[in-house]
Amino acid sequence: MGYYDRIVYSLRNVTNIKGKLKRDPTTNESVSSALAAELTIISTLLIASLLLRHINIVLTIVVILGLGLILVTNMPIIPKLKREQSDSLEKMTFYAILTLGILITLIYWGTTNV
């Protein structure tokens, strides 16, 4: 399947998002809000990655192209994201510890090696 087809397919998937939203009784509202959330997260991620231009232009182009490709091919992101942001203690602890690890690594290695 070509990328064009895949993009169209995944866009159709987004509009068909009610299947992905578990057993919630689906209304126009929930579909439109899922779409809005989807578009928001994709566009903000892409715009935010533009901030990398302060570091390196080539890196920015590569990151944006790669990120755009990944985002579009995994299109209904919001159901996945919502599953990850659930109220389960295990997931919350996992993300907390992950953040702590990234923070300490970045701060320690980022300063001593730059």
């Binding site: 659930s86 109220d87 295990e90």
Partner: peptide
């Protein structure tokens, strides 16, 4: 059990 009480299920 924390996974039963505090999980999302």
């Amino acid at each position: 059990s924390a996974s039963e009480i505090l999980g999302d299920k």
